[in-house]
């Protein structure tokens, strides 16, 4: 197990190197003069800048260096905690991102809870009553959940629960430690909207996993042993299909982090993803790079943990 953890950690390194490289190269995709872009000017501002000022900018940004040197300088800065200065707020990018990070994590974690609470009972019902009404209902829910884009689902839910019924706020945030009740009221809609698609995906996966398990020889053997049916459903079929689903749950966390961009914008949720979008609208490139890097690194880390968890839980791969 320790061996595996170590080798898995080592595998993360090349992946993270390429991730940082992609994030770094994003900048060179931006059309226009990179000097102006990185300094936060529009193309029309070139006239207002004297040649001395321009050269100073080039020098300050290090753009007179070859690109691989710049990459390593940038990477070194990232490691030292110097993620640049946000062009809009003039504050360090890392500080800005860290202040927003908890909100994103709360949202993703709540959405994961929604996912699990919906997917587990639905998939068990669907598999137990295959091709009967509970199965059809769960599967209709699942395919709809996959097909309805989360921003439209969000709009409809806001329309119904905020505007029409007035039960839940449509926008805003409250700190979970200062105002826990307010926090709960604010997070319900975003968490449901964010979790719906993942719940649908997981329901489908768990159901087909359970059906596959139920067709295995060892389930027939369990019946031949005379074990109670509930025991066979849970201890045999569900448990084994959940183990197989752990990796899928890990991938769904990626969907949640990516989907949070839309949900945070829609519900005015002050997280990293909302900050990323604000950065995009105001062409604040250091902030964009930082936010993308934070989200990607979070996902890589979560996947690493999920993978180790899977190795820990599944006896078939535990010792190899």
């Amino acid at each position: 197990m320790l061996n595996y953890a170590a080798s898995r950690l080592l595998q993360v390194i090349p992946v993270m190197v390429i991730v940082t490289l992609i994030v770094f190269l994003l900048m060179s995709l931006v059309p226009g003069d990179p000097v102006l872009v990185l300094a936060g000017f529009g193309p029309e501002d070139r006239q207002g800048i004297s040649q001395e000022q321009y050269d100073a900018l080039v020098n300050r940004l290090g753009l007179d260096q070859p690109i691989h040197v710049r990459y390593f300088q940038w990477l070194g800065n990232i490691f030292r905690g110097d993620w640049g200065i946000s062009l809009t707020s003039q504050r360090p990018v890392l500080t800005e991102l860290l202040s927003r990070y908890p909100a994103t994590i709360y949202l993703a974690a709540s959405a994961m809870l929604v996912t699990l609470f919906m997917a587990i009972p639905l998939s068990i019902l669907a598999a137990r009553f295959q091709n009967k009404i509970p199965d059809y209902s769960a599967m209709s829910f699942a395919v709809l959940g996959l097909s309805i884009p989360n921003f439209w689902l969000g709009l409809i839910l806001i329309l119904v629960f905020s505007l029409h019924l007035g039960w839940l706020p449509s926008i805003g945030y409250a700190d979970p430690f200062d105002q826990p009740l307010e926090f709960l009221r604010h997070i319900i809609l975003p968490a449901v909207v964010l979790g719906a698609a993942s719940a649908a995906q997981l329901t489908r996966y768990l159901r087909s996993g359970m059906l596959e398990q139920l067709g295995e020889d060892y389930i027939r053997m369990a019946y031949a042993k005379g074990l109670p049916e509930l025991l066979i459903m849970f201890k045999y079929a569900f448990r084994n299909s959940l183990i197989a689903a752990i990796t899928v749950i890990g991938l769904e966390i990626g969907q949640l982090l990516g989907g949070s961009t839309i949900v945070e914008v829609l519900f005015g949720w002050p997280g990293v993803a909302k900050m990323l979008l604000d950065g995009i609208y105001s062409r604040d490139f250091p902030l964009i790079q930082g936010a993308v890097l934070v989200l990607a690194a979070t996902y890589v880390l979560v996947n690493l943990l999920v993978d180790l968890l899977y190795r820990w839980i599944d006896p078939r791969v535990r010792f190899s």
């Binding site: 020889d217 053997m221 031949a224 042993k225 074990l227 448990r239």
Partner: peptide, 23 residues
Amino acid sequence: RRIRGREISLVSQDPMASLNPTL
């Protein structure tokens, strides 16, 4: 259910497939 396993039991062909892999 009470007869299966207690009165009549089964040994099947492929012992890998007929044992629960995670118990």
